[in-house]
Simulated assay, not measured.
Amino acid sequence: MNIYCNRLLGAVVVIAANAGGAWTPIGDVTTTMLWIHGQISTLQTIKGLIIPSLVSLTVPLALMSLTSEVNGKGQDSPNILASQQMAPRGQLVFCVGIGALVFVPVFKALTGLPPFMGMLFGLGVLWILTDAIHYGESERQKLKVPQALSRIDTQGALFFLGILLSVSCLESAGLLRELANYLDAHIPSVELIASAIGVVSAIIDNVPLVAATMGMYDLTSFPQDSEFWQLVAYCAGTGGSMLVIGSAAGVAYMGMEKIDFFWYFRKVSGFAFAGYAAGIAAYLAVNNLHISLPSTLAQVPFLSGS
Rank of each mutant, 00 (worst) to 15 (best):
G198E: 11
Q141G: 13
I40P: 07
G21R: 09
G122V: 08
L49M: 09
S172N: 15
P25Q: 02
S241A: 13
L110N: 04
E69G: 10
T32K: 06
S295K: 13
M216A: 14
P88N: 04
I80V: 11
G136M: 01
D153K: 04
I36S: 05
V70A: 00
N206K: 07
L34G: 08
Y276D: 05
V14R: 14
T130E: 10
Y253L: 14
A109S: 15
I50W: 11
V210I: 06
G21K: 13
T42D: 12
P294Y: 10
G48W: 01
L303N: 04
D184V: 01
W35S: 10
I51W: 15
L231A: 06
M119R: 01
E69V: 02
C235E: 11
I291A: 12
L175I: 09
L192R: 02
A180Q: 04
A202R: 03
V102K: 08
Q230N: 13
R140I: 00
T111E: 02
E69R: 12
G90A: 05
S83N: 14
A157S: 11
E137P: 07
S295H: 14
A212R: 05
V244G: 11
L43W: 12
T296R: 12
S77V: 15
S53F: 02
L297Q: 10
N71E: 07
R140A: 14
A233R: 11
V125I: 15
A278C: 12
Q75E: 12
K144L: 07
A233H: 10
F228G: 03
E137D: 15
R151V: 14
S226Y: 08
P78G: 04
S226W: 10
L192Y: 02
L161R: 04
R151P: 00
A211Q: 06
G279V: 04
V14P: 15
A196W: 07
G174I: 12
L8Q: 13
A100E: 06
G246N: 05
A202Q: 05
M242N: 06
Q91A: 04
Y217D: 03
G305C: 02
T111R: 05
V251Y: 09
T32E: 14
I40L: 01
Y264I: 02
P294D: 03
P25M: 01
L43I: 02
L8F: 14
F273V: 00
L9K: 10
N71S: 11
V93T: 14
A272F: 06
E257V: 00
D205G: 03
S56W: 03
I133V: 13
L63N: 02
L49S: 09
G198T: 05
Q91L: 13
R140M: 13
S201L: 08
P88G: 00
A185E: 05
D205R: 03
C95G: 02
F265E: 02
L176Y: 10
V207K: 06
Y253S: 09
S68Q: 12
V251K: 06
L183E: 01
T296D: 12
R177M: 06
C169Q: 09
F262H: 06
Y276A: 01
F228D: 04
N287Q: 14
V106M: 14
Y4H: 09
L170K: 13
V251D: 09
K73V: 02
M86S: 10
A82L: 12
R266S: 08
Y234V: 00
F271E: 00
L231E: 08
A281I: 10
S53L: 01
A22N: 03
D28E: 09
A277F: 15
A180E: 02
T30M: 14
A11S: 15
S83M: 07
I3W: 08
P208T: 06
L61T: 01
A212Y: 08
